[in-house]
């Protein structure tokens, strides 16, 4: 009798401990607001649970979510890249022009469309790392450059990709709906998982955290912070290229105002997902949650027929709240510094 009671208490304690441990995991804290958001959405508009709506959320988020992965890596090392949205536009335009106007073979056009943002991003990275220019200023310059180039190449008119050879196969892939979703969605999820594993299980991942946490300590530990930072820019450039190609595949035209505001969405998603905007902490699962949350929020604003501009107000407030929470969390871990 007494024995079984003791056992009961023990299991209760164990259960409680497990629950506590679950809540200690940072990502769980970020899931809670998502659940709250979903419940609010269902209460106000049951249409939210409509499979069609969920599919739309999945498709929409995966496109700019790819950008958010790269942005997350850059922010993890303590930098920013706000040119990603403009780079998507430039790359889409470049791709469409290369394929449809210069009549390059599809494979070559795709290769160039990957190389272009990688090059641009590498330049931003080099400017930040070698010239020690603040990443915000360097990438806003890149933003201007890319937007200007994409507008110039299109004369602000949409460029269809259709006349290019091999475009049918390409569009078939881009507009395919496996499991009613899109290939982009699966690529996004796969990349999230891969980058999470890389961050948590490899030496490279630990280098990223170390560099973001304390540049000088990382250097003393034998890490080259410059190379690590540059590598995040290169990866981000690759992801921009990938997103641009997939975006063209879906839309079939390139437009100079593609990607407007993606950088802000990506940064906000990264911040919501718990990657510290000061660098050095966070995970890719967090980014995934942040991306989902942002897309659900946008969806709710549409379902509730709230002014779309409200989104940027909400974004700003969320970013400040996320940073305050992050600072609080850090102070709790490190003890109060000031």
């Amino acid at each position: 009798m007494a024995d079984s009671e003791l056992k009961n208490v023990k299991t209760e304690n164990a259960v409680w401990r497990i629950i506590k441990r679950i809540f200690d995991i940072q990502e769980v804290n970020t899931i809670l607001p998502v659940l709250v958001l979903i419940i609010i959405a269902i209460i106000f508009n049951p249409m939210f649970l409509n499979p069609g709506n969920l599919v739309v959320i999945g498709q929409r988020m995966s496109m700019w979510g790819l950008i958010a992965i790269g942005e997350g890596l850059i922010i993890l090392t303590g930098n920013f890249d706000i040119s990603v949205g403009a780079m998507v536009a430039f790359d889409c335009v470049f791709f469409a022009v290369a394929a449809a106007k210069w009549h390059l073979p599809m494979a070559v056009a795709i290769l160039l469309a990957i190389l272009l943002p990688v090059t641009l991003s590498t330049i931003s990275g080099l400017i930040v790392v070698k010239l020690k220019i603040n990443s915000f200023l360097a990438t806003i310059a890149m933003l201007f450059i890319c937007r200007g180039m994409s507008k110039m190449m299109t004369n602000a008119r949409p460029v269809p990709i259709a006349p290019a050879q091999g475009s049918e196969l390409f569009l078939k892939f881009g507009q395919a709906t496996p499991l009613k979703l899109s290939w982009t969605f699966f690529i996004f999820i796969a990349l999230i998982i891969i980058s999470q594993v890389v961050l948590k299980k490899t030496a490279y991942g630990r280098k990223l955290y170390a560099t973001g946490d304390n540049n000088n300590v990382a250097r003393l530990a034998g890490i080259s912070p410059d190379n690590v930072k540059l590598s995040t820019f290169i990866i981000s450039g690759f992801l921009v290229g990938l997103a641009s190609i997939l975006l063209i595949g879906k839309e079939a035209v390139a437009n100079a105002n593609f990607g407007t505001g993606w950088e802000l969405q990506a940064i906000a998603a990264v911040a919501i997902g718990g990657i510290s905007l000061i660098g050095g902490a966070g995970s890719m699962i967090g980014v995934l949650i942040g991306v989902i949350m942002m897309q659900i929020m946008a969806n709710i604003l549409i379902l509730l027929q709230i002014n779309l501009n409200m989104q940027s107000v909400v974004l700003g407030v969320i970013m400040i709240l996320a940073t305050i929470l992050d600072l609080k969390r850090r102070n709790r871990i490190l003890g109060k510094i000031d």
Partner: peptide
């Protein structure tokens, strides 16, 4: 007072104020 990075704070107010104006 909250010791937040100036870039982040002012990007956030940049969006929030512009959004409010548009709303």
């Amino acid at each position: 007072d909250m010791k937040m990075p100036a870039f982040i704070v002012t990007i956030a107010t940049l969006w929030a104020v512009r959004g409010a104006v548009m709303v």
